[in-house]
Every structure is written in structure tokens, then in C-alpha cells.
């Protein structure tokens, strides 16, 4: 089974987000980019499927994404059989899906596994767009993929803890919410080794027309109307204030 895993980097949200002077986007100049956490889960689930069913896991990224080289080398260090860097840049999921669909038409996969969403896919999620372009069945918010004979059975989650099992014929596209186990870790030494060996393939992709997305008027930080009142002092002083707040509501025992 050939499993393709599209990976994408996103701004690290631990950092402060700055907006561009024209207010139409975020200023990425000083941001750190990291692998989208759901893509990390997708890679883990793909590796688990390969371990169960055999085959090949191919991590793919766009060369226009910041830090994508590092991400692809890390994917190999974690166990991906190959990594491909597709020429192109995508400012939206729609454009990304067009580039990836063009690549996948030339290099077909049995299973395409990616994150259910990213923190910046304002115009929609990649997996369903990719499936629609390729005419494939798909399912998102998936928390486990069991390989079968010409099919996969996935667990799809709903709100409130409900879920269901779907069987999809292959090829199919899966949007992963969480892998069956926490994503594995690749030691830095291993990543360095992989980097020294090289081994990322480059591929061209002719996307053609991606179609129109929404028109962004402005991006801004949410107004802090109901901002929390910050408790001052060291940990001990803050602890005292919290206990008082709870005690005042009768929520402290004794």
C-alpha cells in the first residue's frame, strides 16, 4: 500500500501574533513555523497502518512552506520511506489542494492521510478538497485507521464523545484528528543523520486553476472585551487569592 502524507507547517502559537500594516494578514517575518499538530498525528497513524499492512509511507510538502525541509527530514527520521518536496507555494487550502492533486494524479496513492485541519485553513480543510479534486471518498475527524482488503475502516468522532466506524474503499483520503498513540519522537541525532544523507526528492506539479476563495478584508486580534483580571504577585500570593475567590463562593471544603 502506498500511503501519501501531506505535511504543512503553521505559525507556532506559543508566540505573539503580529498583523501586517495593511491589516490583511499576519506578519510572518518573526514567527517560528512548526509542523501542524494534526499532520503530526496523521504521520503517526500512517506509520501504524504501514506497520500493520506493509507498504510505503511517503511524506510530501510544498517547498514554499517555511521549515518544510526540516519537517520532511524529521518524517524520514521517524520512519517515512520517502519524502517529496513539491515545487510551489500555497496561501490557501484551495491552492494547496490543487498542487497536491496534480502531484497525486501523476503519482497515485492508495491512501492519503493528512491532518483534519490546520490552525490557518481559513478557506476550508485540505483532505476534503483533495478528495473532491481526485473524486475519492473521504472522512475527517478520524481517530484510527484499520487497513483491510482493498479498504480501510476508520473511526470518526462526533461531538459529545459519540463516534462511528466507516469502511471506505481505496483509494481514499483521511483527515486525522488523533492517531491511536502519541506521535513518535525522532532524536535530534537521527534527524541530523538523515539530513546529512539528503534524500528528499523534488517534484514539479502543475496545479492549473485552483478556483476562488473568500476575499479577506482584514485580520485582527480579538477585542479583549471580557479579558480576565490578572492576579498579581508570586505563585504563593496568587494561590492565596485563588483560594479566597473559591472560598467566597463556598467552594473550599472545611
Amino acid at each position: 500500500m502506498r500511503i501519501v502524507v501531506p505535511l504543512k507547517t503553521v505559525p507556532d502559537l506559543v508566540e505573539e501574533i503580529e498583523f501586517t500594516p495593511d491589516g490583511a494578514g499576519i506578519d510572518t517575518e518573526y514567527l517560528t513555523f512548526v509542523l501542524s499538530e494534526w499532520d503530526d498525528q496523521a504521520l503517526e497513524e500512517a506509520l501504524l497502518v504501514r506497520e500493520a499492512a506493509g507498504g510505503q509511507v511517503v511524506a510530501v510538502g510544498l517547498d514554499g512552506d517555511p521549515e518544510i525541509g526540516q519537517v520532511l527530514y524529521t518524517a524520514i527520521a521517524k520512519g517515512a520511506d520517502a519524502a517529496v518536496r513539491i515545487a510551489g507555494q500555497a496561501g490557501s487550502a484551495r491552492a494547496r489542494s490543487a498542487l497536491l492533486a496534480a502531484y497525486l494524479r501523476r503519482n497515485p496513492a492508495d491512501l492519503i492521510v493528512t491532518g483534519v485541519q490546520t490552525v490557518d485553513d481559513l478557506d476550508g480543510q485540505l483532505a476534503p478538497m483533495l478528495a473532491a479534486r481526485l473524486g475519492l471518498p473521504h472522512a475527517g475527524v478520524v481517530t484510527g485507521v484499520e487497513p483491510g482488503d482493498g479498504s480501510v475502516t476508520v473511526r470518526q468522532e462526533f461531538s459529545g464523545g459519540r463516534s462511528q466506524e466507516l469502511e471506505l474503499p481505496l483509494p481514499a483520503v483521511i483527515g486525522v484528528q488523533a492517531a491511536r498513540q502519541a506521535p513518535r519522537y525522532a532524536p535530534i541525532s537521527k534527524i541530523r543523520q538523515v539530513m546529512a544523507a539528503g534524500g528528499i526528492e523534488d517534484a514539479a506539479a502543475d496545479a492549473g486553476e485552483a478556483g476562488e476563495g473568500p476575499l479577506v478584508r482584514r485580520m485582527y486580534a480579538p477585542e479583549r472585551t471580557t479579558r480576565a483580571q490578572m492576579l498579581e504577585g508570586g505563585a504563593d500570593a496568587v494561590a492565596g487569592q485563588i483560594v479566597e475567590l473559591l472560598a467566597a463562593r463556598g467552594l473550599v471544603k472545611g
Binding site: Q117, G124, Q125, P128, M129, A132, V141
Partner: peptide, 8 residues
């Protein structure tokens, strides 16, 4: 999440 982007 399944249908919106596919229909887009």
C-alpha cells in the same frame, strides 16, 4: 468539516 471544503 467533511462536507464544506469538499463542496467548495
Amino acid at each position: 468539516l467533511d462536507l464544506g471544503a469538499a463542496l467548495a
